[in-house]
Design a protein around this nucleic acid. Structure first.
Lengths: 245, 245
DNA sequence: CGGCTACTTGACCGGTATCAATGTTAGTGG
DNA sequence: CCACTAACATTGATACCGGTCAAGTAGCCG
């Protein structure tokens, strides 16, 4: 099987059949490249594509009066982006490339076919989307009810934990290619204050930084500070329909 | 057919086949009553039920150290609560009755069977969960990036717009049976500040209040202040798999 | 009537935003 | 290789929004 990002991602939750893996691989036939900072999709534009990230980072965000904006989700290799446009004809958010990245567009008919042919994968996508929703719940709680320092800690942990899905459990450092302004847009803070909080986290010896790389020194301390709950650890796939053989 | 809450809800989005409707009807169990303030489900508890609200208000919330908490979603009649427990064995949030209310519990194992037998319904649930996610996106943006007054305005508008679905488009006043502390838990504010902002909205003649009833005086002004986007436009289900019959 | 609970009001404080200046790094063209 | 530039990161000074604390008021229900 040619390397399919989405298959690699899903197989962390479930042992895929040969059939399923190749159906997924077929979704990724026409990769498209975007440059750092390039806008992939725009709020309000008619959208009948989803994207699977093959490489690079992207994020979805809502912007207000042109200045303020809120980053909603960071999207990593293997993630399925733009799923909100499944429910609406129009995109509800902007998609922007954080780094140069390669995406595999996938149109709604293809997804539909997947739902028909591979119910088990459909159910798995549903489960994953619930997990994402729960993690949005946690972000809402974090932004609504905790301090700037805790929010930054929560963001860092979320990135770390999600990277571990692809890179192994002993990962303790991540290259974060976002500007501090972007981190602020994700956490609801100003860039200046992001900077100060990162410094405080370093001073508290919870993390250390070199260039864009963040090294997690005291994960337990960070988890406590952020009141972080790792939701991906609890995903339950035992109830899914059986493989179709 | 005895009135099935969930079939009624889903048929707002899609014409159900006879087969599908009766499969849904089989999921239903006896309605259950809860009193104002009663906890319906608890964070971390094993959860194998979903609920459809037949009457009353409820909300889901996460609580932290016992004091602080964040209300995630307000749930009104017709809403499906507890879907995150489909993906996890355990509830990720608390469910509490705002008013006395009547709920229809749905059996989770039976819902699993539904995924196997009726992929189209599974896809529909997927779509609905995406729509909910988009509305969470808006709340995240509101809480992350706007002022206290705007957040209150956004909450009021959201309640109003969702009530209109059931009570008609010319509705301009809503009875809100929440305490100001609960409004604070929904918007990430303290009860004291909620009070001040409500008074400011009144002083600005955007709303007026009598007891718990809020009268929307200047909807355009509120929408502008909150930068509110009404997402409850038609959900697009045109791409779903065809009925199986 | 008393004792809740929720709402209201005022005084004050602190965390975060804002504004502004400086330092640092990467890229670009000569 | 260096000068120039443009982002981005860092630092400091100050302002303000919303939090905290505390006291008082108004309903409501026994």
């Amino acid at each position: 099987m040619a390397d399919s990002c989405i298959a690699a991602r899903l197989s962390h939750f479930l042992a895929l059949t040969e059939e399923e893996a190749s159906a997924l691989a077929r979704l990724e036939e026409n990769p498209r490249d975007y440059r750092r900072g390039e806008m992939i999709g725009e709020q309000g534009a008619p959208a009948d594509e989803l994207f699977i990230i093959r490489s690079g980072w992207a994020y979805s965000h809502i912007s207000f009066d042109g200045e303020r904006r809120q980053i909603l989700r960071l999207e990593f290799p293997g993630d399925l982006m733009g799923t909100s446009s499944i429910a609406f004809g129009k995109a509800s958010d902007n998609l922007t490339a954080v780094t140069d990245c390669t995406l595999c567009p996938l149109d709604r008919p293809a997804l539909r076919q997947l739902f028909i042919d591979h119910c088990r994968l459909a159910a798995l996508l549903f489960v994953i989307s619930q997990a994402e929703r729960v993690s949005m719940d946690d972000r809402l709680a974090s932004i609504g009810r905790s301090s700037a320092k805790s929010r930054i800690a929560a963001l860092l942990l979320d990135i770390l934990v999600r990277f571990r899905i692809m890179h192994g459990e002993d990962l303790d450092r991540v290259e974060i290619p976002m500007t501090q302004e972007e981190i602020g847009d994700a956490t609801g803070l100003t860039p200046v204050h992001v900077n100060r909080m990162l410094q405080e986290l370093s001073r508290d010896e919870l993390i250390s930084r070199k260039k864009n790389e963040v090294h997690i020194l005291d994960e337990v301390g960070l988890v406590e500070l952020a009141e972080y709950i790792n939701r991906y650890a609890d995903v339950d796939t035992s109830w899914l329909p059986p493989p179709e053989a």
